[in-house]
Design a protein around this nucleic acid. Structure first.
Lengths: 221, 221
DNA sequence: CTAATACTCAATAGAGTTCTTGAATATAAG
DNA sequence: CTTATATTCAAGAACTCTATTGAGTATTAG
């Protein structure tokens, strides 16, 4: 059957992508790329790898169709190849949270206070926003925020959160969200806010889910 | 920052799943599992690997949370860990089709006749079914078919297609579908039908998309 | 033109993965 | 109790992947 060779070739191609997802360092880099375009050096610094090593990982990501690159001057800027890659990463997180006991444990121990950990559902958030009870924090990159966000949300990309921590009052509850329901940015924002003694929670879903649930949306023009 | 160790641990866990997806043979096995529960020996035969090797791959799939197992008598039956795994695989196919030129080329050369290759959109199919112009072929496993399918569709799981090829008349157009829009089962069904000289096309989307588009659905009780 | 910067390339040691082989274990059948 | 069947385990050869090192290339700044 000639189909078996076709199938084998096809699976070999799929495996290229799988392989690219099979290294913690590469996933770390992808996560950074998902926050926006970045140069090799900046990625190397942020992921704590040597420049040469980072460059090699980036080339693998490019060859497996997960990232693409643009040269400007002496710098090369890499970015996520498309939205489908972000959805693939989200599914990866989802499967990990659901099927790997270690992951659930990790997340729980990191977010220390167990009982206030529950993510807030979209509908509940909407009511509380209307009543002015919570500040909604959007930790996605600026461009994504501007393309559409939850009404009255404040945009503080994760990188800038540290510098803006003082802007939040300790009495006000903060609800953070980002892309998917498994987006690590939101987890991390919550963790950092809590460390500063703030009341912080996560939105149960991310922006795509909010949008496709038909909930109100605001755009920056 | 203690968060960096947390993040590293988390990515290491995610990478376990990535690694599991990073082998053509393991993906082949997963694809078989996606068609239904199977024993180690049967998987070994179907994927043309030694039993010991298959067993090792299956253990990796289990440890990475992609598959689970059940022992019955002297056999061990493995199955896909959950629906989220099927969606993960679908996203993997999607990214591959979209971002790897090799994959598009492969699919096109396999489905030989380029001009009749276009998948049929859901709405068009619905009309043609009403007029009795096409046979709709559901190649998913029996249980999934019974849980819900396109009205008047015929269920022939891919494994049984070869034996039932004579049931189709050469004048009747056949439209095959399965799970997601990137499900390989449908591609393969179309290829096999065409090889027999039948007029075969693929539905542009899979059953989940058909359902969530609010199109009519039939159940076997 | 020279130096500095940003990145890639090539070679390589060490670690990890794959597949094979043969033995070990568990269950069922005679 | 013995044998057959289905699966797993363990060890090892061949191969692939990762991170490091130092050199090489391209672009900009002085």
């Amino acid at each position: 059957m000639s189909s078996s060779s076709f199938k084998h070739d096809l699976f070999t191609q799929f495996a290229r992508i799988g392989k690219a997802l099979g290294s913690a360092n590469r996933l770390k880099i992808l996560e950074l790329l998902a926050q926006g375009e970045r140069s090799v050096e900046s990625l190397a610094k942020a992921s704590d790898l040597s420049v040469a090593n980072t460059s090699q990982h980036l080339q693998q990501l490019r060859q497996s169709g997960l990232a693409s690159a643009r040269k400007q001057g002496q710098s090369v800027f890499y970015r996520i190849a498309g939205n489908e890659v972000i959805r693939l990463l989200d599914m990866l997180h989802h499967v990990a949270e659901k099927n790997l006991a270690d992951v659930e444990r990790l997340i729980n121990t990191f977010l220390t206070v167990r009982d206030s950990l529950e993510p807030i559902p979209a509908k509940e958030l909407l009511e509380r926003v209307r009543k002015g009870l919570v500040i909604v924090l959007d930790v996605r990159p600026r461009e994504e925020f501007e393309a559409g966000h939850i009404p009255n949300a404040v945009n503080v990309p994760l990188e800038e959160l540290e510098q803006n921590l003082n802007e939040f009052s300790p009495d006000q509850e903060v609800v953070a969200y980002c892309r998917g329901p498994h987006c690590i940015l939101a987890y991390e924002a919550v963790a950092r806010l809590r460390k500063k003694g703030l009341k912080a929670r996560r939105l149960a879903d991310g922006y795509p889910e909010w949008m496709s649930a038909g909930l109100p949306v605001e755009e920056t023009k």
